[in-house]
Amino acid sequence: MLIKVILHNSMDVKILEIIDLEIMYRVGRKSVIAVRDVSLAIEKREIRAVVGESGSGKSTLASAVLRVLPGNARIVRGSIMFDGVDLLKLPEREMRRIRGSRIGIIFQDPSATFNPVMRVGDHIAELLYVHRGTRWEEGLKVAESLVKRFGIPSERVYDYPHQLSGGMKQRFCIAMAIATNPELVIADEPTTALDVVTQMQVLSMLRELRDEYGTSIMFITHDLSLALSISDNVTVMYGGEIVEEAPSDDLRREPLHPYTQMLLECIPRLRQRLDFRRFEKESIELPSTRGCIFSNRCRYARERCLREEPPLIDLGGRRVRCWLYE
């Protein structure tokens, strides 16, 4: 077993490879596709940002990797290879050994992570007890030193979740996610609830985690500036599909997909004031169900875009799903 793991480590540079994934949700008698035609690979030591608007399927993707999809979700097809093993084929018992231990999790909603009747530090102690057999008292000490690195006074590990502000709760979640020194950390909007100062701190912590321990990070966010600043590569999702993927520097310099271009344009900057009112008229419709998914919001949409869905076109080093680049 040990030998097999070492072999995988040395041979395969990919820590996570998602292949042709499709996921549906049942809502009443209807089904909605939340993730479609998604293939992406994250390398060891890579920080990959997955960026996309609300409802684009980012959390669904993360939940699929962790196998914590809600009951009404169904994986229609695809595989999720983690360090050479298809997670979707693993028995739950083995998955539990990976989840929270080899794959760390930071959720979007910090309050959902906590048991309201447990002190926040107990959560970390429990995790270390379950996965590492660490004594509880010792676990609490680890929790104290961990949270201090995130700018929280150590005595606050003895507080209950409701006594902390949203930002503090989220920093606790991050401390929890890295407590077991995982190979991959999936961070779903980890800094959404944070102010800019704490955000910087968390971002540098995640960077350090990669630089020091070689941890791969899948950083899910709707904030493109954030995505660009922390990641090596960015995957842009829209309506459950990947619409663009590129090295962060290339994406910043030259966004190709009209959706990515729109995002870069709407970022509030300190230098000039954006005239928000001009966006009011623009559509905020759901992704189109015919032709290109972005066609009903796209400034460049042509006849063909309304009819025919473009494939994810490989441009060598980057990918884009748009007929403009055929």
Partner: peptide, 26 residues
Amino acid sequence: RLLMRSVIDPDTRNIPRVREVSEPPS
């Protein structure tokens, strides 16, 4: 000024270095 320095600029690379944060406020 600290708040302003720590705004991420989408037009340039990298995370702003913020040094003041070492001492957590309570």
